[in-house]
Amino acid sequence: MKKKERALIISQTELAAGIFEMRLAAPQISSCAVPGQFVMVGIRDESHILPRPISICEADKALGQIRLVYRIAGEGTREMSTYLPGTSIDLTGPLGKGYPLDAVNEDTTALIVGGGIGIPPLLGLSKALNCTRKIVLGYRDELFLDHDFESCGNIYISTDTGSHGVKGTVMDAISQYQIKPDIIFACGPLVMLKAVKGFAAEKGIPAFISLEERMACGIGACLGCVVKTPERDNHSNVNNTRVCTEGPVFDSREVLL
């Protein structure tokens, strides 16, 4: 159930250059969030009229908190990074469809692939999946959140610069470590998701990928954030679908990248 909630910032930390972590008291949103869902974050400076879509890294129902890990991508997220603990901000969420946790069972080997700022929502997912988890995290250079994944399964790192792990992409790491999954869960840049989609198709396994697109409303009304689909979409009645509502997580076979 979507809620509008005024959330209190509990902490704000820079995890890596330009990557920030915000913990917020948001009892309503945390109580029903599914891994892969997102929130719209209202920017306090009203000249920024659009809220910013940020994926939920983790939701803690018991504490009534959510954790957002975001990258400074423009003026709105730059302003977000200046908010101090004790500040209240408006959230709408949890929004969209998250990852299908019931797509695995105890015998499944899941490959969890994250690239850059696509990594955060995979943390909540990795903790929630009840199966063997092989986690591949790709970075440009500097690592973040990697230690948080340690309790979830085997971790494989790739970096563009080669400063950590395999030098290259997540696909290079998957190939080098000969990971043979039954299912893939991914979030990251489009070029990575295309590669994941291709890999899944080649292996004949399902892949659930989380897409990113510029949004205005985040709730399905504005039709700003669409992705092309091979089949006619039920809601739009044309060959595209809303990332914010039917996604952001899609079966990779249901979208054209």
Binding site: I49, G76, N240
Partner: peptide, 28 residues
């Protein structure tokens, strides 16, 4: 009849405003 609308990106924020070029996507 149904309209597909324009390619993405379709929206962008501007100072105290926004631009949209949805292209009237509608189900017909």
């Amino acid at each position: 009849v149904p309209w597909e609308g324009n390619p993405v990106p379709r929206v962008a924020e501007t100072p105290s405003g926004m631009l949209n070029a949805i292209g009237l996507q509608n189900p017909g």
